[in-house]
Design a protein around this nucleic acid. Structure first.
Length: 249
DNA sequence: AAGCTTGCCAACCGCAAACGC
DNA sequence: GGCGTTTGCGGTTGGCAAGCT
């Protein structure tokens, strides 16, 4: 909001969107779609840059965007995914129907990160905070082991939902120091992600979550049920467990 | 009641990948 | 294959509201 303007110099508007602008953008996208963000504002008669329109649509105006507080399950999912993926917000968002990367990023930075830090010994670096390379699009396999399996014993890249933070207010210690999963014990490699993500997208039973690419399409299906979400996590954890066993052979 | 601090979140920027010619 | 343009992503900022002194 207060940086060097990129739109202002072209006479374009910046800052908070008005209801009128929202209406115009939604109406235009409903009628013509958004094949070309750059041309869209001009066609719609908006004094905004395409980037701004895109962001507004994705983060706020899309019909499938879920508003309101995050549920415990969603927070757990974010924590787990962040432990494995690092700051790949778009990938995390793809696994949380109705949530945007921006929203997840905000929740992480304002709530979850602090919560996580408060229950780990000082000096422990945050999972994936620095390790993840910036934007390796569509390449979950690129998750470096270092970020996928945080070094501290307090982080559990893959733990059961019961171990998750939001359900452990009285047992933060359990998240803990016992280290049932150490970085040596659990390492996520490329094949893990290829297989795991493929499993979630191609799941023929139909119980998997949506594919990461289509989850948020304006015309995508409605969000999956929480049962499906739980199913996803159960499968993910089981898969992780299987791979661990195999790696020890 | 007023001033100050802190937390939240919408929106912006820069960079890099993807795309098209 | 090279180059310019567009899109998407992650990091960061700053306005506002709530809480605190």
């Amino acid at each position: 909001m207060g940086r060097a303007p990129c739109c202002e110099k072209m006479g374009l508007k910046r800052g908070p969107w008005t209801e009128e602008e929202d209406r115009i953008l939604v109406a235009h996208i409903e009628r013509h779609g958004h094949s070309n963000w750059r041309a869209l504002p001009k066609q719609a008669g908006l004094l905004r840059c395409g980037k701004s329109c895109r962001l507004r649509w994705i983060n706020y105006l899309r019909p499938d965007v879920k508003r309101g507080n995050f549920t415990g399950e969603e927070e757990d999912a974010i924590i787990q995914l962040h432990a494995m993926l690092g700051n790949r917000w778009s990938m995390i968002a793809a696994k949380l129907p109705g949530r945007t990367d921006n929203e997840i990023k905000n929740v992480w930075n304002t709530h979850l990160k602090k919560r996580l830090e408060s229950c780990k010994p000082s000096g422990q670096p945050q999972a994936g905070k620095t390790g993840a390379p910036k934007r390796k699009a569509n390449k979950p396999a690129a998750v470096p082991v270092a970020s996928a399996a945080p070094e501290g014993p307090t982080s559990h890249p893959v733990s059961s939902p019961e171990q998750s933070l939001s359900t452990s207010s009285a047992s933060d210690d359990s998240v803990d120091n016992t280290g049932s999963f150490s970085s040596e014990e659990f390492q996520v490699d490329e094949s893990f992600w290829s297989e795991t993500l493929a499993m979630t997208t191609v799941d023929s039973s139909g119980s998997g979550m949506e594919s990461s690419g289509d989850t948020f399409g304006a015309d995508s299906a409605s969000p999956s049920s929480s049962n499906d979400e739980m199913d996803f996590w159960v499968r993910l954890f089981m898969q992780a467990g299987d791979l661990q066993s195999l790696s020890q052979i």
